[in-house]
């Protein structure tokens, strides 16, 4: 069964496509926006912007270190640079440049990492950004955003461009279920409750939001009422929604397409540990690199499924 089918969702566009569309649309009314690309614009989808605004686009070649620091200089001279590459190459290859040329001086650079997660499939682990959220979240002052579908990605792109400060936007390669079919009221740092529930809370972002909705259907069939929260911003995290969930339900399961360490699960657990201890379960890639293969097969093999969320939630309640 396809992701989202159980909860009645239809397949929509990939988040990278929605970002590319929104960027090209918004570029006209935002003259300070420029794109800096390390020759992957047709993958990250900055290409439509660059075709529309060639004088505001720079393909500086396959050189991520230079890519990020050039963007720092552009921002220091008043531009709003959008820097897009694969999540792993941007975050892992240019991390010190992000630290020193963007985060430490607090410059208005928009970092965009596409091809995040294991759902990129056949290209394999070298291309999979599965540690990027952890790396981004350690940077003081950088907003870290992981949208779930095309509509929320478009809204997140607009929010990112109007936000004054450095941001990291995480995008995926495959088509994903459309969740926000009636538009998305998106605000950086404010989560969105998609379904109310009183027994357990499922907190997810990215591709895992649709799976959490599916899991909530499964749980409902078992007589368990599950709240579902789209925690699209990992930093700054929406503490209030987490604390409320910890107090109003009996457990929280966090699902993300990321390594176990340092991602959404860690961010949520830090909040509950400090303010409202509660039973927690975690659905993620674990502590391993993945492998090449078809996306659905990979998600299944590495435990990123609605069933995994359902099992974790039911397990919490039976403890």
């Amino acid at each position: 069964m396809a992701i989202g089918e159980k909860s009645g969702l239809k397949t929509g566009a990939a988040t990278r496509d929605a970002f590319g569309e929104a960027l090209a649309e918004l570029g006209g009314s935002l003259p300070e926006v420029v794109v800096v690309d390390a020759d992957v614009g047709n993958s990250t989808r900055t290409e439509p912007f660059s075709k529309k605004f060639p004088e505001r686009s720079f393909n500086i070649g396959i050189a991520e270190s230079n890519l990020v620091s050039v963007a720092g200089g552009l921002a220091a001279s008043g531009k709003t640079p959008v820097v897009a590459s694969f999540a792993c190459f941007l975050m892992c290859n240019a991390y010190d440049q992000i630290r020193m040329s963007v985060a430490f001086p607090g410059l208005n650079v928009k970092l965009v990492g596409s091809h995040a997660g294991i759902s990129i499939g056949e290209d394999g682990p070298s291309q999979m950004g599965i540690e990027d959220v952890a790396l981004a979240c350690t940077l003081p002052g950088v907003a870290v955003i992981v949208p779930a579908d095309a509509a929320s990605t478009k809204a997140a792109t607009a929010a990112m461009l109007s936000h004054d400060g450095p941001t990291y936007l995480r995008l995926g390669r495959p088509k994903v279920p459309a969740i926000y079919t009636d538009g998305c009221d998106f605000e950086i740092g404010r989560s969105i409750q998609l379904r109310d529930g009183s027994d357990v809370t499922l907190i997810a972002n990215g591709l895992m939001v649709a799976m959490a909705l599916d899991a909530a259907e499964d749980l409902s069939a078992k007589g368990i009422s599950a709240r579902v929260i789209d925690m699209h911003t990992v930093s700054p995290i929406d503490e209030e929604a987490i604390i409320r969930a910890a107090r109003e339900t009996r457990g929280i399961v966090v699902a993300e397409e990321h390594l176990a360490a340092g991602g959404l699960g860690s961010a949520v657990a830090r909040v509950t540990a400090e303010h409202a201890p509660v039973k927690m379960g975690f659905v993620n890639v674990g502590n391993t690199y993945a492998e090449s293969g078809d996306p659905d097969g990979l998600l299944e093999k590495y435990g990123l499924t609605p069933e995994a969320i359902t099992t974790a939630a039911a397990g919490l309640l039976s403890e």
Binding site: V34, F58, S65, N66, V68, S69, V70, A71, G72, G73, L74, A75, A76, S77, G78, K79, P81, D96, Q97, R99, M100, S101, F104, P105, G106
Partner: peptide, 28 residues
């Protein structure tokens, strides 16, 4: 540290980044 001292154009100290930052200013 450009954040703390107006007139400093780049926060440097991790060697190798200044020319890229300068290129960004030049392109702007």
């Amino acid at each position: 540290n450009m954040k703390r001292l107006p007139g400093i154009e780049a926060s440097t100290g991790s060697l190798g980044q200044g020319l890229s930052i300068g290129l960004g200013h030049a392109l702007a």
